[in-house]
């Protein structure tokens, strides 16, 4: 049996912005889930998930030292905070968009 949960159940995230680039950290509450996140949340999967938002590439960095992932998303802010017409021009709320993603777990 597989069960489906929201990423939000097992991880937290904060978004940062520089120019037209948004970065999202992804940090499991339980360090044991780091490998699960590493396996499930690939840059490719995120690129598909954010396809309507992120125009450029997504790079994933692994930080096993603090059991965290860092996603760097290029072209994520419609030209950057100064000209982005989105209500959230900094893309601050993208962190919880990420946490809204479903993942499948083995029971």
């Amino acid at each position: 049996m597989r069960k489906r949960i929201k990423l939000w159940k097992i991880a937290h995230s904060r978004a940062g912005d520089k120019g037209d680039i948004s970065n999202l950290s992804l940090i499991p509450y339980d360090e044991k889930d780091f490998n699960l996140l590493k396996r499930e949340i690939t840059a490719e999967r995120l690129k598909y998930y954010f396809r309507g938002i992120v125009k450029g590439r997504i790079e994933r960095y692994e930080l096993p030292n603090i059991h965290a992932l860092n996603f760097v998303m290029y072209g994520a802010l419609s030209g950057g905070v100064t000209r982005n017409l989105c209500l959230d021009a900094h893309g601050k709320t993208l962190s919880f968009a990420l946490l809204n993603m479903d993942i499948d777990l083995d029971d």
């Binding site: 940062g16 520089k18 970065n23 950290s25 509450y29 930080l63």
Partner: peptide, 16 residues
Amino acid sequence: LQTCKEQLLYEIHDPS
């Protein structure tokens, strides 16, 4: 640990 981890990666690109 959690507050520090979130801030450590805030506005970071390549962590190296």
